[in-house]
Computed example of a mutant assay.
Amino acid sequence: MIVDRLDPLVNPGVVPSPHLHQIVGGNSFNASMDPKTHDLPSASTCTSCTFSEDFSNYWTAVLYFRARNGTYRRVPQFVSEGLRADGGITVYYIPSPNANEKVTAFKPGFRMLVGDATARANNPNARKVCHRCMPATGDNSNINCGAPDSQYLPNKMCPGGIRSVITFPTCWDGVNTDSIDHMSHVAYPTSSYTQVSVGAYGTCPASHPVKIPQVMYEVMWDTQMFNNKELWPEDGSQPFVWSTGDESGYSQHGDYVFGWKGDSLQRAMDARCNGAVCGQLETQSSESAMKCTKSKTVQEDIDGWVTEIPGMAMAE
């Protein structure tokens, strides 16, 4: 995993990009990644993913804490199921529960985006991105967005930290591997929405008839170190801010660029693999995965207490 100001999907070629992201996956990630010339499996020499054939890239915004004195500090992450000690993103690939329904793996060059980095108000598509104030004992039941989750950031101290979940569409138009907004070529099912899985279930619309894997991100933020009333604003308002400069929570988003080697993802979907163990795929140890690192492109202070979030001056 790296934390850097790069975004080849929304801001291709821009260095630095407007805000900070955490990025996992293949180590060929860079600011441009032209889908016509950049093939992740062949360009990458390693991946930080559990499955060693997965050179895809996954990235999300980064969470900061704003102290009473106006300074900021990046919120660390903690170990969760499927998440290593150095933090990052737990990525789920969920096949259709209907064994008779064909799930078509993504094609080379496929990419998509969920959420809106500029959003500061409620999004009617509430099932896409959500936050949960975790209890002290931890609660990984219902990994999908549903009660008691919310689109906005929790407005109270969370004993077990904050979890954010990002759920991608599972219906594809069958033609385009990308679109101008990185969203229009995919869609959510039109029916049978359940709390069990927001996309693996349901009927695809006629405009997007091809069922694709349910991709879901789970990110665990260790906000416990900031559970001190002396640090929080005097008025008690919630002090967490996304790296987009957003205090509401609505701007959290997830980017995805497909990079599985050969037909490995299709084999996994055909076998209905769901979880960190799949007999159809090659895996690597956590130690090997964590050794896959990449030097930062933008050299700036992202840790310790800072007077502004990286990129904040660009947004002003």
Rank of each mutant, 00 (worst) to 15 (best):
V3R: 12
D4T: 03
N11D: 10
N11H: 12
G13D: 00
P16S: 06
H19M: 08
Q22C: 08
V24F: 13
N27Y: 03
N27S: 05
S28P: 09
S32C: 14
T37R: 06
A43P: 03
C46F: 11
T47C: 11
S48M: 10
C49A: 02
T50M: 03
E53D: 05
F55I: 09
Y58C: 02
W59R: 01
V62W: 08
P76Y: 08
S80T: 11
L83T: 07
D86W: 00
G87L: 03
Y93W: 13
P95V: 01
P95S: 14
K102N: 11
A105G: 07
P108A: 09
P108N: 10
N123L: 14
N123T: 02
P124H: 02
A126N: 11
K128S: 14
V129T: 11
H131K: 11
G138Q: 07
D139H: 04
S141K: 12
D149G: 13
N155D: 15
C158Y: 04
S164H: 12
S164W: 03
V165S: 12
T167K: 03
C171N: 11
W172F: 15
W172E: 11
N176K: 14
P189G: 06
Q195I: 05
Q195A: 15
S197T: 12
Y201W: 13
T203V: 07
C204D: 10
P209T: 02
I212P: 09
I212A: 05
Q214T: 01
M216Q: 11
M220E: 11
W221T: 00
D222L: 10
F226V: 08
F226Y: 15
N228M: 08
W232Q: 05
E234L: 09
E234W: 01
S237Q: 13
Q238N: 14
F240C: 03
S243R: 12
T244H: 13
D246S: 05
D246V: 07
D246E: 02
S251Y: 08
G254Q: 14
V257E: 13
Q266Y: 08
A268H: 03
D270T: 00
C273N: 04
Q280V: 06
T283V: 07
E287N: 14
M290Q: 12
M290T: 07
T293F: 01
K294P: 13
Q299A: 15
Q299V: 09
E300Q: 13
I309N: 09
M314I: 03
